[in-house]
């Protein structure tokens, strides 16, 4: 079962995740002007919301994390030295 956590301190209330989610998992909490999770069970863990969220305010737990074969270890190694 997918578990989604929203960091309310980080969420800027832009509503991008609400617009982008194909299964209407999110809704805007008009009072707080933050995103809230309303249909967690319908989340298919596509993680489009992660990609679109400017604040990286969400976390998905217990999902199938797709293999990231595109990661170049040489580049990652260099980046790790810099960051």
């Amino acid at each position: 079962m997918v578990k989604i956590e929203i960091d309310e301190d980080a969420c800027v209330g832009c509503g991008s995740c609400v617009d982008d989610c194909p299964n209407d998992v999110y809704e805007m909490d008009e009072e707080k002007n933050k995103t809230k999770v309303v249909k967690e069970d319908d989340c298919m863990a596509c993680l489009s919301c992660h990609e679109i969220c400017p604040a990286e305010a969400m976390e998905h737990k217990d999902i199938h994390v797709a293999k990231r074969l595109y990661i170049d270890r040489k580049v990652s190694g260099i980046l790790k030295k810099i960051i």
Binding site: P22, C46, S48, H64, A66
Partner: peptide, 10 residues
């Protein structure tokens, strides 16, 4: 295609 995402596509 219904939806494409970085972690899954429907």
């Amino acid at each position: 295609i219904d939806h494409v995402g970085p972690n899954a596509c429907l």
